[in-house]
Design a protein around this nucleic acid. Structure first.
Lengths: 246, 246
DNA sequence: CCCCCTTTTCAGCGACATCTCAGAGGAAAC
DNA sequence: GTTTCCTCTGAGATGTCGCTGAAAAGGGGG
């Protein structure tokens, strides 16, 4: 029951057609989850399981963005990148890479306008990075507008990683920030702890849903402290972020 | 005595044909009850008792949604899910699972857009989740309209789990909420206590019909308090929710 | 008008969900 | 190498919810 946050913020290109993203990963489970989440967010998705498939799909599908595992069974990820670029110079690429393999090969990627996420990642992380890439590439419609997320007196600047409640800047840790971003992208909708765990925490996280309660309590202290509460508990169901007024 | 509610809100796909759902559970009684209720709500239903049967039925029946017990005699539920997805990437899946087995195996389910319900569940719970899945998948016609349930001055936002009478927000507990949802889905129709018990309470509930009376009284205090009553007693029969005016 | 049966309401208890605190372990920054 | 910060675990406190049992209220038929 996660799925469609958007509905409101459906991603569209300048010409009104949905944004196309190609997911390349040799682990079918991961590729499928990514693909479904992206689809539920309004993207047109295609998947490939190896480098050859990726290149074929790219030629056929003409994606705006590619989520690309650097560790592929056949062709090296960076080589795939170069071939992709040869065909489509403007395509945005988000790399998926193991945590320790970062330094070696991925250095310089971000300079080219691309970005990367280390495995294991959280789905929100991937979504945010992809949105960022496309926004910076100027592909999506709400390019400027989307930079600032706002719910009632809460505002979040994703680029600056800055959050403010009623104009007052609030310092958040990385996890707090990502949790709040997920809440702010789904205002007025009750999110279960399972949903939050699945989207905000890394996909291999084995812990208990208890951490969600804990981080909600952290957020409350920083965001709701003394003010009209915006984070509400729905007992037996989950949590919901609502603007102060009605 | 349960049988056909709806009649009013018959579920149809974009092409006008009824939505198809496949019910997979190895307990015949449960599968049958689910199947009857779904059919009475206007769905085209087929059932299977194990994983192999499910896959066969899926290929033949081409369901839009699948209600899938994770505990099957032959194939593991998650494996069935993957096979289903391989054939039909867009199918919605609602898992049925034991309460304690949630954390381990269901992780990631909600991220992919699917959902789960823990046994023992109430039929209304299953129906609501299924409706939610299909709505979010954009399959059913009344996609947007259905999000807000309205009867007279009563309105219910299922996503926000928010109920309002004459614009005034009313706080409800989970059981109260589910009872009211059932009433609101069957306005102007008298529902017996047995019917309500069968649909709103978990299927293994052993208690007395007295709880229905109790929760009706709770609802009245919160919803009818001081206003024109909408919840009416039909002595010897049951209860009915009616708009205030005529 | 009274009696019986249904329905409503009240009070209370046990179970459970949630919140909060304190601290261990680890990662990142300095 | 040290220090700081962050994340997560565990346990206890707290408050809410759902249900039971009994008493009160209300309706309808005789």
């Amino acid at each position: 029951m996660t799925s469609d946050d958007s509905g409101s913020a459906r991603l569209l290109r300048a010409d009104g057609t949905p944004v196309r993203v190609l997911v390349v990963d040799d682990e079918p489970d991961l590729a499928e989850v990514l693909s479904r989440v992206l689809a539920s967010e309004g993207w047109a998705v295609r998947t490939a399981g190896d480098g050859a498939g990726a290149l074929a799909a790219a030629g056929d599908f003409q994606p705006d963005a590619v989520v690309l595992d650097v560790m592929l069974p056949d062709i090296d990820g960076l080589r795939v990148l170069h071939r992709l670029r040869a065909e489509a110079p403007d395509v945005c690429v988000l790399f998926l890479t193991a945590r320790d393999a970062v330094e070696d090969r991925i250095a310089g990627i971000t300079a080219g306008g691309d970005d990367y996420v280390t495995k294991p990642f959280s789905l929100e992380e991937v979504l945010a990075r992809l949105r960022g890439l496309l926004r910076r590439a100027g592909l999506t419609r709400q390019a400027e507008a989307a930079r600032l997320l706002t719910v009632g007196g809460l505002s979040m600047d994703e680029d600056a990683r800055e959050v403010a409640r009623d104009g007052q800047i609030v310092e958040l840790t990385p996890t707090e920030f990502e949790l709040l971003r997920f809440l702010m992208r789904n205002p007025r909708r009750v999110l279960s702890k399972a949903q939050i765990l699945d989207r905000v925490w890394d996909y291999d996280f084995g812990g208990q849903a208890h951490v969600v309660e804990l981080y909600i309590s952290y957020l409350r202290k920083k965001i709701d402290a003394g003010r009209t509460p915006m984070i509400h508990t729905v007992r037996g169901v989950g949590y919901v972020l609502k603007p102060e007024a009605p």
